[in-house]
């Protein structure tokens, strides 16, 4: 009984940390067991959540190994590998790094780094692909005198 106010505290803390989204059921259930988990400054990750995320990550690793070594998918392979890696990365970022419960500013900062990274890689790659024929032609010239 005494702990209900604490629970309220946790909820309000979430709001101040900028997370307006409702907690998902899994984590809600986990939350209900841990009224004692209060911190005055930030969101405390619950044990079931941490374990769930870890096992999901291991599962996705197994999936990507199976897919990478057993399946022949041609060009799709790279895409699928990257999709699975991104799923894993998202899990780490959202839960282990508590970005899901963090201030929008920190989310924005992290996303902007990805944006600028893709800009850098994307434009460089686009150029490299376009000048490569010229380089290859020169290389062939040099190879066959």
């Amino acid at each position: 009984m005494k702990r209900f106010p604490q629970c309220g505290c946790v909820a309000s803390d979430d709001r101040t940390n900028g997370s307006n989204r409702k907690q998902r059921n899994v984590f809600m259930a986990a939350h209900a067991h841990d009224h004692a988990e209060y911190n005055p400054i930030g969101h405390v990750a619950s044990k079931p959540m941490l374990l769930t995320v870890f096992f999901l990550l291991v599962g996705l690793t197994a999936l990507t190994i199976w897919q990478g070594t057993q399946l022949e998918l041609g060009t799709w392979e790279l895409i699928i590998v990257l999709v699975i890696a991104t799923a894993k990365a998202s899990l780490v970022v959202l839960f282990f790094m508590h970005l899901r419960y963090d201030k929008p500013l920190n989310v924005f900062a992290f996303l902007s780094s990805l944006l600028f990274m893709s800009l850098f890689i994307g434009l460089t790659l686009a150029d490299a692909v376009n000048y490569q024929p010229e380089v290859s032609a020169k290389e062939e010239d040099a190879a066959s005198p």
């Binding site: 600028f116 800009l119 434009l123 686009a126 150029d127 376009n130 000048y131 010229e134 380089v135």
Partner: peptide
């Protein structure tokens, strides 16, 4: 400022489209 860097490379062998 992040979108214009390759204007230093107009004669460096980059592709015409870039």
């Amino acid at each position: 400022g992040f979108l214009v860097w390759a204007h230093h490379m107009f004669v460096s062998g980059q592709s015409a489209i870039s």
